[in-house]
Design a protein around this nucleic acid. Structure first.
Lengths: 224, 224
DNA sequence: CACTCATTCAAACGTATGTTTGAAACGGAC
DNA sequence: GTCCGTTTCAAACATACGTTTGAATGAGTG
């Protein structure tokens, strides 16, 4: 069995060739076929490695999938953090606008791939998969990839919305998350089924308009 | 194989005993374990019927699930329609407010069961399941259960929001749907994992506040 | 009773799955 | 060259699954 941490040895090579090839193929295949439809046989065949490699390197299929998901999330959240950096710099000492914050949260999710389909649609699908079938171990393993961004967003939105209570801000941020989760699930459907190209700019404008209004809503409804 | 429609015979007994017992058990089991985790062996064992009964009565597992989902959706949408009737009656000749329309859309989804958990959480899970794994035949079979309500909501929201274009109204209604879908997925999690009771009134107030602001948003952002 | 249809049943089918095993191949250390 | 831990490999394992089959049952009809 050996430790999860590879033996000291040549630590420079970030990962064994097989291990990184497996996780790369897993990400791509999950992207195109959906997590439920990918077997470890599919992955190992495509990656040109032995069937047993996945259990050897990751322990189980489930943990491989969790690592693939964590990788996507990290990529997305790194972009978001960078956009928040820019927004904060641009705002000088003041807090960035709700719209700027929303853009930092939303835009990275709209990136398109070479087919002009949503690049992270598979990430949304994997998330759905874990939401539907919650596994405490995996949730725990994923949490650190979400927390820093969430804390920062909470702080920034609270600053931009001083009239909204902190718990409300958190709750409303949850709705933005919901919208984006759903959005990506369906961006995938729309793209694959209809061959429609996605109009990122228009989507972004609509999403920011809807969400910023929601974030700013007066607590007791009746805005007009 | 015989037709799907049972032979004429005693049409008074709405469904054969086995058939209705199967669909009832299926609904309940999907509710508690999640659609992915329920096998036809689980269902038939629990219902006390033969393993082959599902394929005999429904043709396949997938079609049984679709029927169970359609049943839930019909129940929900009937309530929504009734609430819309009331809202329209109350508004007299004028169009009901955005808030009243949202309540009709949202409240039926918040009904709790005897454990004060969300009663339709399983419906959301089943929906998620079909979204993740779209099957044209099943989607087609589900459509009629959604369309009448959707058309009516579109018409009413457009009347209540004359300054928002029809395609925008439709798009925004989609976001409300997204929020509710996600909301129910997580209401289930919260309820089961934490044993927390759900505060329907508070949830409704928050949801309506967020969504009504979003529905009313000025198209080009920057509300203040 | 005899006929017929829908329904139920136990059993088997065929297959796809994630995982384990035990031996072989590799590669650096001494 | 030999040892030793790591990695790869082909093969088997152990089920779990949805579905099919063909005979048995049962009720309604003539």
């Amino acid at each position: 069995m050996s430790d999860n941490t590879k033996a000291a040895a040549s630590a420079t090579a970030a990962e064994s060739d097989t291990k990184s090839r497996i996780i790369g193929v897993a990400e791509r295949m999950i992207a195109t076929k959906g997590a439920e439809q990918v077997s470890i046989r599919d992955i190992t065949r495509e990656a040109g490695v032995n069937l047993a490699a996945i259990n050897y390197h990751f322990g189980s299929k489930e943990r491989l999938f969790a690592e693939a998901l964590a990788r996507s999330i990290t990529a997305i959240n790194t972009t978001r953090m960078a956009m928040l950096d820019k927004a904060e710099a641009k705002a000088g000492g003041r807090s960035p606008s709700v719209e700027a914050l929303l853009e930092a949260f939303i835009l990275p999710l709209l990136h398109t791939d070479e087919n002009e389909c949503n690049r992270y649609a598979h990430t949304a699908k994997m998330l759905s998969r874990f939401f539907l079938n919650p596994d405490e171990e995996i949730m725990h393993m994923l949490r650190p990839h979400f927390m820093p961004l969430k804390e920062r967003l909470l702080r920034l939105f609270s600053a931009a919305l001083p009239e909204v209570g902190k718990t409300d801000v958190e709750w409303r941020l949850g709705q933005v998350f919901a919208i984006m989760h759903h959005h990506m699930l369906f961006a995938d459907l729309r793209c694959k089924d209809l061959g429609k190209k996605l109009n990122v700019k228009k989507e972004l404008r609509r999403l920011v308009a809807f969400c910023s209004a929601g974030m700013r809503a007066t607590p007791d409804g009746e805005a007009h």
